[in-house]
Design a protein around this nucleic acid. Structure first.
Lengths: 128, 128
DNA sequence: CGGGATCCCGTAGGATACTG
DNA sequence: CAGTATCCTACGGGATCCCG
């Protein structure tokens, strides 16, 4: 189970192909709170275009992660919510988010360190 | 903690920016087995170009997730291995991989269902 | 309001050739 | 062996306009 040699690559790929894009996890997170409308999501996700919100929601709906409910009224009203499957996905994603919250500072430190060493190396090259 | 409303979006983004790319998780998975050489990784990761393996490894090294050890011999020899930080990331990623293993069939089913309904709807349109 | 249709661009990433 | 250097293309995704 888990990150195994042979199967891991492809399985990990498959899931990242679905939720590894720019917006899916944010949509899932917000729908995890409660059912929301299109405009509500758009307002809460900073920087998303309506096109990408539509595309993202369609993809999640197709994968059975969110449900889409259309009310035939004027003006139109569409509700989105997480399916049970979507809820389990959100739980799994939490592990990564938690990891991020507790280790991102270490990554930032490692980066700064790496960049500093690199700059130093480059400086030596220019001297020679 | 976890996938929370406001912080979730950005935190989730930050981690996906680092491991959400096409190859990082596979590299991490393989280095989780043991220390490996460049060519070894290239041989085991199907479809990766040497350019992308280099780029991926550099990024992971910069983020403190893998270490790079160069032996000054001819021909060159470079070993890569997971850092402790990288090991914790691998553990976290396992949650997603496990989820994938147990739910990907549900997603495939949902997709087939969605596509079938869509084709049906389109057929009706063409009739009218 | 909740999209669909177009146009457009930046960039991730593949193929290939060269090097210490 | 383990890269680096170019070149080039596919596609994710933004901006804009239109429509029921």
């Amino acid at each position: 189970m888990g990150l195994q040699p042979h199967s891991a690559g492809c399985r990990a790929r498959e899931i990242l192909d679905r939720v590894g894009d720019k917006w899916s996890l944010q949509v899932i997170a917000l729908l995890g709170e409660r059912t929301k409308r299109f405009t509500e999501l758009k307002r809460e996700i900073d920087g998303i275009s309506q096109r990408m919100l539509t595309v993202t929601l369609r993809g999640l709906e197709r994968d059975g992660i969110v449900t889409r409910t259309v009310y035939p009224v004027m003006p139109p009203r569409v509700d989105y919510s997480l399916t049970p499957l979507g809820a389990t996905l959100m739980d799994a994603a939490n592990a990564l988010v938690s990891w991020a919250e507790s280790h991102l500072d270490q990554i930032d430190a490692a980066r700064a360190d790496y960049d500093a060493r690199l700059a130093e190396t480059d400086a030596l090259k220019r001297t020679s």
